[in-house]
Nucleic acid binder design. Sequence first.
DNA 1: GTTCTTAATGAACACTGTTCAATAACTTTC
DNA 2: GAAAGTTATTGAACAGTGTTCATTAAGAAC
Lengths: 203, 203
Amino acid sequence: MARRNDHSPEELTDMATRRVLDCLESTPASELSLRSIARDIGYSPGTLINHFGSFSLLLLAANARTLDDLYQTLHTAIHTANEEKSGLKAIASAYLAFARQRPNAWRLLFELRLADDEPLPAWQEQRIAALFTLLEQELLKLKPNARVQDCQQAARVLWAGVQGICQLTLENKLFSPAGMADDSEILINSLLTHYLTSWTEAE
Amino acid sequence: MARRNDHSPEELTDMATRRVLDCLESTPASELSLRSIARDIGYSPGTLINHFGSFSLLLLAANARTLDDLYQTLHTAIHTANEEKSGLKAIASAYLAFARQRPNAWRLLFELRLADDEPLPAWQEQRIAALFTLLEQELLKLKPNARVQDCQQAARVLWAGVQGICQLTLENKLFSPAGMADDSEILINSLLTHYLTSWTEAE
DNA sequence: GTTCTTAATGAACACTGTTCAATAACTTTC
DNA sequence: GAAAGTTATTGAACAGTGTTCATTAAGAAC
């Protein structure tokens, strides 16, 4: 067969990544396949490989969409903060809700490991940096005289901590004994409250 | 071919799981295959399926060994604690060292997701419960009048938090800006110090 | 020594991601 | 407008995957 030209490259990217995310609504990432995605959008496997470079890079392109959605979600969540619920807690809640609502797409964000000779593209790093900036700004509000480096560090500790809680609860790997409050919302709240109490007071 | 009987079932389990862990020393879990493991130990793929039930369950059996090693490591680490380094920090350090030393085996502990109709076997849950107990005991030492449920909850928050830090640094996904102290040891220390400062004082 | 049980197998199945020569539709040149 | 050049798309082939299953023969039971 020969060139068809009934979709532009941008349209192809859009169709393929959208199809990936649609599948992830009901199917774990491990059950996706290049061939089924190609079949679904009416192209051959080779076409997708030509376009994205590899199946992994197609998934990475889908991750970019997820990251954009996530950024939007967290960004608007900040405005739901009030005197009882700090911006950071609002962000964390929104993050947990996002992970719960789209567990497969969210997991793929962290599961996907590229080959060592394929470094993470710059556009992906920028998206993640933007997320961290969101956190750092909130931390600075909480402790206006904090050093920039301390905010950066605390942002990473909290991010990783919340990430761990979301992940382990999603996978049911916290094995909470009966009688223990184990809603991840409560665990996250405990993490933020205790950490920030000491962090804002320190020094 | 017919039955060989030159290895007992226990020996077969031992050979196969050991081979899996040996491979993980130099190869990520995603590159393992049932067929290569079978080839390496001189059996057919079908034999391993007969014995373990599926490739995933073979990996799960390998995870059991890793969990046992991890428990031993953490258990002995407690004794390195002194007045400057609490038992919890000693455990966290040992945990990080373990993850760094055997990243592929450590990752497999969390990556492996069984089908929904294959619940985690009891012997696996017991191993994980033992790890949590280790933490809860240390927390009780730190705050002798704490309620059991609070120790259980704090153990899970800290475990998940340390887990998140280990994972994200191992995957290089914290994108630490220049000038920020980003050694995971420091991040973990920040998490434990701040969280525990507030937690032990609370109420 | 014969029957019964069962561990182990190779072949088959339906997949997978990736490569690549062949193709035909567009684009450019004359 | 026709010929030459470019390139998106393809099907077929490749080497691999996990799993199933009838067939086999060694060991156990009688």
